[in-house]
């Protein structure tokens, strides 16, 4: 396989893997998150929040993949990029690495959203308890 073929195949394959990673993380977190959001905000808003979780994970994965440039480290022309197979492999690894980091950051962000939902839920329950 020539370096150019390798570049084309690896670019689209890594892009697909990155997107799948975002979707898998969303599917793993969706069920417990929907239950929390429904308990805290009601059915309609929970649907919006769950969709936002999905968009956020997919966008984080896409952003991680797209944020790695092939023209970095002094490679300004296409010929320079495809000259070195090792450079192409390193770039694919970097794309997966940055995708993982972005998704992890997004998961932490949604942990804070869940924290806010739980605090809101607890406050509502306390207010109801005070009234009775």
């Amino acid at each position: 396989m020539s370096n150019e073929h390798y570049l084309i195949v690896s670019y689209f394959l890594v892009g697909l893997v990155s997107l799948c990673l975002g979707i898998v993380v969303y599917r793993v977190l969706r069920t417990p998150f929907a239950a929390i959001a429904e308990a805290a905000t009601g059915r309609l808003r929970s649907r919006v929040l769950t969709r936002a979780l999905g968009f956020c994970m997919t966008l984080a994965a896409a952003l991680g993949f797209l944020s790695v440039s092939y023209n970095q480290r002094g490679c300004v022309s296409y010929e320079q990029v495809i000259k070195n197979r090792y450079f192409l492999v390193q770039n694919s690894k970097e794309q997966l690495q940055v995708t993982g980091e972005w998704i992890a950051s997004a998961v932490f962000l949604w942990c804070i959203v869940v924290l806010i939902c739980l605090v809101a839920l607890r406050t509502t329950q306390a207010n109801r308890h005070d009234k009775t």
């Binding site: 977190l29 069920t31 929390i36 932490f108 942990c111 869940v114 739980l118």
Partner: peptide
């Protein structure tokens, strides 16, 4: 659900 969410988030991260 919150327990499950935080445990899954921990494993993923």
């Amino acid at each position: 659900a919150a327990t499950e969410f935080y445990l899954r988030a921990f494993a993923i991260v």
